[in-house]
């Protein structure tokens, strides 16, 4: 019999985003990754840029390269990413250390899962993240001055 090549049905990176009908924890998961990558990219640049202050180069102040509106908007995006990543991170620490998933139960239809147990926590941290973001936006738009 000839060798049969099988189709590898792995979904690939697209499968992280979702290949079907997924729940909101899936999107929290992918957003956590994206915001984490964004903040890391900023951190790497931020370390170098702020280190230049030793040479008396302040690129982020009035007239500096990073004072342009596009970079100011980028910085606000980092604040937004932080708001999500930090508050979702509180939930993840609680969930992944087994504090917010409940105890094993008898599975009786319709099944109740740990997803439902931690859902109120997800909603609560998202509200807090939104509040943090609103205060950040209030300052970003210059309304505080």
């Amino acid at each position: 019999m000839a060798a049969i090549t099988r189709h590898n049905n792995r979904l690939g990176v697209w499968g992280w985003l979702g290949g079907g009908r997924w729940g909101i924890e899936r999107y929290a998961y992918i957003l956590h990754r994206l915001t984490g990558l964004g903040i890391l990219l900023y951190l790497l640049m931020h370390t170098v840029v702020t280190s230049l202050r030793v040479r008396n180069i302040y690129l982020w102040t009035e007239g500096g390269f990073f004072h342009q509106p596009i970079f100011r908007l980028g910085e606000f995006c980092v604040v937004a990413a932080f708001a999500f990543h930090a508050f979702n991170g509180i939930r993840l620490v609680l969930v992944e250390l087994g504090f917010a998933v409940g105890k094993p139960i008898e599975p009786i239809y319709p099944y109740k899962t740990s997803v439902g147990v931690q859902r109120p926590l997800l909603i609560a941290v998202m509200v807090l993240a939104l509040l943090f973001l609103l205060v950040g936006a209030y300052n970003f738009l210059g309304l505080a001055r």
Binding site: V95, E96, V115
Partner: peptide, 26 residues
């Protein structure tokens, strides 16, 4: 595992694999 919660949602027997993995990590 990063708790996307999908396994628990789709399990046709209500076994809740997500819960088991978090308890294991703990």
């Amino acid at each position: 595992c990063h708790y996307a919660g999908e396994c628990s949602r789709v399990c046709p027997k209500g076994v809740d694999p997500g819960k088991a993995i978090q308890l294991l990590k703990r």
